[in-house]
Design a protein around this nucleic acid. Structure first.
Lengths: 337, 337
DNA sequence: CTGAAAGCGCTAACAA
DNA sequence: TTGTTAGCGCTTTCAG
């Protein structure tokens, strides 16, 4: 059975497509007589009409889709995607997910496969992709709001400052009596300008300690776990581990337990991002919680504004992560004043 | 700056839009002379042309988007979404995510907000939505492949049989010496026909034991955790917990530890689905692993077939979950023959 | 209050 | 090998 069009409705009601369009979109609705309006609505329902959004998009230039760019949909990014879905629900927008990591040559990618024409893009933790997107010139098609734990002056941006949280975590570990506080990070975290590493290094300077970087290939549970095994075997384990993110911390946690290392007595551990699972371990994992709700609301707000006023001034907001201390790093009873 | 169209290219090259279209889509490419083809390609690149996919979709009827329907993007569903992204990458398809739970009246929903016109839908664990989608008559717009741990005869379907895994888990718990094996589930799991509960009940019958259902509101870590607290306080804790899924198991795990209950000595625990975190606890959690890779590949394969041959016979595949025994349920050393 | 007409950017017959 | 033509389904002036 063919799909219904406004023409079918017009015919059935005995009016013109233009009138049907006016009623069904609500634009100019008020100028149409009650009877016609009602007849059109009823017929649309009866016929099971649903508009062809591609056609609508073609003429209006709006698809009412936005893209979420992310490197993967796991853990923290899944959390964000999830919240974003909630944030978007009241709007008439839908979300298409573009996984951005596997197209290192985004520019070339754009030549071949044009991605779905979204009205705007929220780029999560993927400044690289934003950069080549802008360079490819496609930027004029859909505005980008960049979001993530870094500074980004080239587009609208909602940042999360993890620096102060990391610093707090480092001082916290010191206060808990850790002698060797290492930053367990990954290649990703070693990129010049990575705010977590920088904050860690700065904190170490202020604590007058040597920074120590432990670097895995991927920021994965498994890589972290294996690295820990290695350190234990070599007898070279620090007693404080400030991890790049929660996945790394969870992997480290497992690695430590497998090797019979006690947490936090032998090694105190902190993660970063605040994914749900950290709270559920035998020693709940201390972490720096990102304000995901605020992040998503702010990002969507920025994007909406940009869609309404393409030429509004560059928007930039900075949020803050906050240290949540849990058992994995708590060696001393908190003592009163 | 205006967006480029094939007309602009045609004009620049001195040819017609049709020719440009042929070259750029590759259809009829071979009939065009090398020189023209090259000129068109070069000019397209220079001008930063990218096709208007809404226009293309309008005429071809194909958007090259598929939808993933899921109730949420957390945990297991996030895993699936992630793998699906991988599966889709080689194709020219993109994925739009539709969160399906909060529209209880899907039928009415469709009247108002037509969702983005995707070519097809993969409905993950959401038979209810599929049902009202079909009832709404929208089914003729885009075919659905349903995927999840249940039986579903009304559309193409890729199922996962968890029944045998659950049964195995129940027998495993019995073998480990559990006296009271309860099924810790949620409202969702109490719906008539829920395959996990049915398999649990059947296993209990065969073990000649009383089935015991513990039911939380949501299938969430928190609800499970609180329920456990309650049971412990009432002194009414079973010594075997066969959980609806891994979130519930993780919440139960936490609840038990908080109350000083030992796992597996006092209570043996099994989860279901096989999300990554289960492996990282102090007592790694026994779980029934769903074959996510196969699931995604099969679902996409079904959908592709259906898109190519709209009238092909109903497709149905059944995969199997497999019990992975870990420490959370292992009270006795495995003894050799 | 309603309808006719034009056109969004593209593809697909068909003609040349 | 290329160009002409006719839409895809919808919205949007603008004229009734």
């Amino acid at each position: 059975m063919r799909r219904m069009t406004i023409r079918d409705i017009a015919q059935a009601v005995g009016t013109s497509p233009a009138t049907v369009s006016k009623v069904l979109t609500g634009r100019g609705d008020s100028l149409i007589s009650d009877t016609t309006r009602q007849k059109i609505r009823d017929t649309a329902r009866e016929l099971g009409y649903s508009p062809n959004l591609a056609a609508r998009a073609l003429v209006t230039g709006r698809t009412h889709c936005i893209a979420l760019w992310a490197e993967t949909l796991a853990d923290f990014h899944a959390m964000v995607a999830n919240v974003l879905l909630d944030v978007l629900r009241p709007s008439r927008y839908e979300m298409v997910i573009t996984d951005v990591v596997k197209h290192p040559d985004w520019h070339a990618y754009f030549q071949r496969n044009a991605p779905w024409p979204v009205d705007g893009i929220i780029a999560l933790d993927s400044p690289h992709s934003v950069e080549s997107y802008l360079a490819s010139g496609a930027g004029r098609n859909a505005p980008v709001v960049s979001a993530g734990a870094y500074f980004w002056p080239e587009t609208d941006h909602v940042g999360v400052d993890l620096g102060s949280g990391i610093r707090e975590a480092a001082f916290h570990l010191a206060e808990q009596g850790c002698v060797r506080i290492a930053h367990l990070t990954c290649q990703h975290g070693m990129r010049p300008g990575d705010s977590r590493r920088l904050a860690y290094e700065a904190a170490m300077r202020d604590l007058e300690r040597e920074p120590e970087l432990l670097v895995t290939e991927q920021s994965s549970r498994e890589d972290a776990r294996l690295l820990i095994h290695d350190l234990v075997r070599r007898g070279d384990l620090p007693d404080g581990l400030l991890c790049f993110n929660d996945e790394v911390a969870i992997g480290a946690y497992r690695g430590l337990r497998e090797m019979g290392v006690r947490i936090p007595e032998d090694v105190a551990l902190t993660g970063c991002d605040g994914i749900a699972d950290t709270a559920y371990f035998d020693q709940p994992i201390t972490t720096i919680v990102q304000p995901v709700d605020e992040l998503c609301h702010a990002a969507w707000q920025c994007l909406q504004r940009r869609l309404d006023e393409p030429d509004c001034p560059l928007q930039s907001r900075m949020l803050k992560g906050s240290l949540t201390v849990r058992g994995s790093s708590l060696r001393r009873e908190v003592h009163g004043p």
